[in-house]
Design a protein around this nucleic acid. Structure first.
Lengths: 220, 220
DNA sequence: CAATCTATGCGATCCTGTTCGCACACATGC
DNA sequence: GCATGTGTGCGAACAGGATCGCATAGATTG
């Protein structure tokens, strides 16, 4: 087997925590991530060359692959951080008693606010999911699933309070919301939608799903 | 200005229709498309090298760029054909009098049947939309919009027959359906969903949107 | 026919993500 | 201290998509 496998974050049981090599590696990883983040922000993902990232991190390009499986992974790491941030942001201001629809809206707002500042994150993450046999693809999908899970959790709360039709498949609903939001963001990233139009579109989808498309007999 | 611009399909007014050069070009394009289609099918998009496509088409790799802007474009051409086929297939068996929900379901079935045979088409098309400054991205989005338009048209018919709540934004609904379907297909392409599970998921989304998420007072 | 323009084709080359083989540093076991 | 194993780094090389400059065949003009 090859020496180090970038997949695992090292630190085997046999190693002392102050192993010089591991410390060095950890510092390198930190420098790489910092360089990547800065360059993605400055030039965008595609224009941020791996060699440029490496240079800013003070190392050769190939060395990056000791710590990361692919360039996409660098972005996925950012995405994970940002998603965490969006969740914290949401949870901080979430009140479980508010109507479910509003809670969902708030969540998308939190997310949108952060994503709007990092145009690449959404789009390149989507791109990553189009390399089906790469491990990065699975990572992104897992992140997505976590977001979908949070949405489902909110919906679940709504059901418990009788806000929602008890028959609907909440996970399916969460997925639909999530993917619709992504669709809107792709349009935004491609310049077909302004940032606020994108937000409005997402809001519209939420309303749509909540109102229901079919004519509810007795509400027309 | 450069001589030939691959963007336009040549044939300027000044040229006779039997201009030998243009005929030759047309034949080359045909060979390229055939080679690309075959290799995409055999090996998948990523494994189908441009040099291999060129070889099978009987020309040098760089010559392809006389006729096409990028490798992605070769796929988009396939996608456009396939979409046309899906529409024809749908229209052939569509009966306007059937309930709207069923018509929508049928449409997705038509589409799904064709896409299931060409795993790359959906996924790589999505990837293409993640290169925001390329022209291919816009082409794919335009194709998507056409599909969304067709869905909206069906919904419109439903509204005319009183099947649907007159207040909903049909375009937004069409978009939501479309993007939810794409989301399911990405999962399918990544092996998280079997083909039939993917179809079921799409059906579920349609049902969901039609039933409506919010509790319709008087239906529980 | 000569001069010119245009559509097509080609090989060399570039760029960039990624892999490879080797070297070095540190840690561990004898 | 020496052999061995492991974590890290590097430069060279590879692969594949894209670009460039030049060549050629056919069309057009005079």
């Amino acid at each position: 087997m090859r020496a180090s496998d970038p997949a695992r974050t090292s630190t085997r049981a046999t190693h002392q925590p102050e192993d010089g090599r591991l410390l060095r590696g950890a510092r390198s990883r930190a420098r790489i991530r910092e360089a990547a983040r800065a360059l993605f922000q400055e030039r965008g993902f595609d224009a941020a060359t791996l060699r440029a990232i490496a240079a800013r991190a003070g190392m050769g390009a190939s060395s990056i692959y000791r710590h990361v499986q692919s360039k996409h992974e660098l972005l996925v790491l950012e995405l994970a951080d940002l998603q965490e941030e969006a969740w914290l942001d949401f949870r901080r201001q979430d009140v479980r008693a508010t109507p479910t629809r509003e809670r969902i809206q708030k969540f998308f707002q939190s997310q949108h606010e952060l994503l709007a500042r990092h145009p690449d994150l959404t789009v390149i993450a989507i791109r990553a999911t189009t390399y089906p046999d790469s491990r990065i693809s699975a990572r992104v999908l897992a992140l997505n699933d976590r977001t979908i899970g949070l949405l489902a959790e909110i919906l679940q709360g709504g059901r418990a309070q009788g806000d929602l039709d008890p028959r609907v498949d909440l996970l399916a609903a969460a997925r639909a919301l999530f993917h619709a939001a992504i669709g809107a963001r792709i349009s935004w990233a491609n310049g077909l939608l302004t940032e606020s139009a994108c937000r409005t579109a997402i809001e519209g989808t939420v309303e749509l799903l909540f109102r229901g498309l079919g004519r509810a007999e007795g509400s027309g």
